[in-house]
Write a protein that binds this DNA or RNA. Structure first.
Lengths: 198, 198
DNA sequence: TTCCGACTGGGACAATTGACCCACTTCAGC
DNA sequence: GCTGAAGTGGGTCAATTGTCCCAGTCGGAA
């Protein structure tokens, strides 16, 4: 019997839950499946969390705050805005290809949160976070190329998030790499036209 | 006791299931919930269907084949390609606003199908259908304006589907109408640039 | 060393849910 | 009218699942 403080146990359970959701889907993420993945007993689960709902909520929060700046462009001198944006989108796509199950899990968690009014804020926070990350990347890109966004950068970022989501969802269904790259190019195109370039 | 032939009963159950999924989500679409919505008994359910899975599969098939050309552009002489595409996307958005739960249900059904290998073809068929409808609309638009798609129309259509999905998913989360319209405009922009206009 | 409280294991329970069964009713064809 | 098969109602079963409980065990503070 290994003794672990409750805080670590919560973290371990959340990690295990994310693995189960990624691998088998949210519907299969039962308390028993999570506990088995973490190598604990049910009692430990309910010692660390009051309920499964509490864990899922915390899973969403955790996973959102953990969201990386995975898609930050690397800024090579002489690149045009369009090139930077396209490279950033393609980098995101490689990230998606490397771990499709993770993005699928994020989508499922979003849908889940959308389904109950008191969890809706969790989904909203998730997307606010995406938008903020995108806005930061867009600001860097504009500064680097001396371009200027015609709309508030948050608005442009919101469009970028929509494009990214669409790329993700459609690729998860058909796994058509070329099509996804075409989406990335088209999206970069649209975004570039939302800026005044010098 | 009203007697209904099995075929009609299947149809009625599928309709009821779609209502339940739209209103409460796929997870809540239990046999009992569906049967209650349809006003039948459990026995009638299992007389018409072997299993819940069979009904859900048929629900997906039905709902895909029923998918309307809701977004066909109306072609007003003198319109530019960009105007036609933007109007089409905005029309889709109005369709989404009018019945968000339906699109949310479609998303959930897609995710569900993605989760089991033998149901993956159902999701693929769903998106193939979307792409075909989009391709048809794009051909009409090009013909009407004398434009010519630089890539195969299916490829352009696939990009359009991705943009539409992204618009849908993000709007379902934040319900930001202005942002969705900005996405529509940007998407129309990107698509227009995939054609040679005269 | 003792002891208290944090922590764990295993079992148990109630609710839900998909599936099924059997006795009954209705109707079409004879 | 009679009959057989299609269709129905309601109850039941087994499996799953979230939650809980209780008897114990361990570790650190006194």
């Amino acid at each position: 019997m290994t003794r672990i403080p409750a805080a670590e146990r919560r973290a371990a359970l959340i990690d295990a839950a994310l693995r189960v959701v990624s691998r088998n889907g949210l519907a299969q993420a039962t308390t028993r499946a999570i506990v088995a993945e973490a190598g604990m007993s049910l009692a430990s689960f309910h010692y660390a969390f009051d309920s499964r709902d509490e864990l899922i909520d915390e899973l969403i929060t955790t996973v959102v705050s953990r969201e990386q700046q995975a898609v930050l462009p690397d800024l090579i001198p002489g690149q045009t805005l369009h090139e930077i944006l396209e490279a950033g989108l393609l980098r995101y796509f490689e990230h998606l290809r490397a771990d499709p199950e993770h993005e699928q899990a994020m989508l499922e968690l979003t849908q889940y949160a959308l389904r109950s009014p008191d969890r809706h804020p969790l989904a909203a926070a998730q997307y606010a976070r995406y938008t903020a990350l995108a806005a930061h990347a867009l600001e860097l890109a504009a500064k680097h190329t001396g371009a200027r966004w015609r709309s508030p950068v948050d608005r442009v970022a919101r469009v970028l998030v929509a494009f990214t989501d669409g790329l993700t969802l459609t690729w998860l269904v058909d796994r058509d790499d070329d099509a996804a790259r075409a989406v990335a190019t088209a999206a970069a195109d649209a975004l570039t036209r939302m800026a005044d370039t010098r």
